[in-house]
Amino acid sequence: MQRVNMIMAESPGLITICLLGYLLSAECTVFLDHENANKILNRPKRYNSGKLEEFVQGNLERECMEEKCSFEEAREVFENTERTTEFWKQYVDGDQCESNPCLNGGSCKDDINSYECWCPFGFEGKNCELDVTCNIKNGRCEQFCKNSADNKVVCSCTEGYRLAENQKSCEPAVPFPCGRVSVSQTSKLTRAETVFPDVDYVNSTEAETILDNITQSTQSFNDFTRVVGGEDAKPGQFPWQVVLNGKVDAFCGGSIVNEKWIVTAAHCVETGVKITVVAGEHNIEETEHTEQKRNVIRIIPHHNYNAAINKYNHDIALLELDEPLVLNSYVTPICIADKEYTNIFLKFGSGYVSGWGRVFHKGRSALVLQYLRVPLVDRATCLRSTKFTIYNNMFCAGFHEGGRDSCQGDSGGPHVTEVEGTSFLTGIISWGEECAMKGKYGIYTKVSRYVNWIKEKTKLT
Rank of each mutant, 00 (worst) to 15 (best):
S25W: 14
T287K: 06
E82R: 10
V181N: 05
Q237K: 04
V451S: 11
K45I: 11
D315Y: 01
T215Q: 09
Y305L: 02
E433V: 06
L19Q: 02
G21E: 04
E159F: 06
E320P: 00
Y201V: 14
K146N: 08
V278L: 07
D212I: 09
E82N: 09
G229H: 06
N313M: 08
L14T: 04
S329K: 14
F388D: 06
F360H: 14
K446I: 00
N147E: 10
V331W: 00
I344E: 11
Y391F: 11
N258P: 00
P239K: 00
Y47T: 14
V269K: 02
R404V: 07
T81W: 05
I17Q: 02
K188S: 14
V243R: 10
G398K: 06
S114N: 08
C382A: 02
V257L: 06
F121H: 10
K293D: 03
K45E: 15
G236R: 05
V278T: 13
R298F: 03
I344D: 12
C28S: 12
G427W: 00
N452V: 05
E165F: 07
G253D: 04
T426Q: 00
F176M: 05
C108W: 00
S184N: 14
I297E: 05
G229P: 11
E10Y: 04
Q237S: 07
R83Y: 10
Q185T: 15
R364A: 14
N5K: 14
A397D: 02
V331C: 05
R180E: 02
E270C: 08
W118L: 02
E323H: 09
L319E: 00
I428D: 00
V447D: 00
R379K: 13
K362P: 07
E86T: 15
N48E: 15
F144N: 00
E434H: 13
E82P: 10
L321I: 07
E53W: 06
D111W: 05
A9M: 06
A192N: 15
K293S: 08
T85S: 06
N343C: 03
K68A: 15
R83F: 08
G246R: 05
K260V: 04
S114K: 04
I136C: 03
C407Y: 05
E66I: 04
W356Q: 03
T29S: 13
A250K: 07
G229F: 14
A265W: 01
I17T: 04
Y201K: 14
C102I: 00
D150C: 04
I443R: 04
C178I: 01
G355H: 13
C157P: 01
E98K: 12
Q408V: 07
N80Q: 10
K293M: 05
V377P: 02
Y330R: 09
T81P: 12
G280R: 02
I390C: 04
N310M: 05
V353K: 04
S25K: 07
F388M: 10
L103Q: 12
N343E: 15
D33T: 10
P324R: 05
S255R: 01
I214C: 11
E67S: 07
M394P: 01
G253H: 08
T332L: 12
I429K: 14
K247E: 08
N135R: 14
I390E: 05
Q143L: 02
R162M: 09
C145F: 02
S70E: 15
G413R: 03
G409Q: 10
P44A: 13
C128M: 00
K347V: 03
Q96L: 10
P333K: 04
C97M: 00
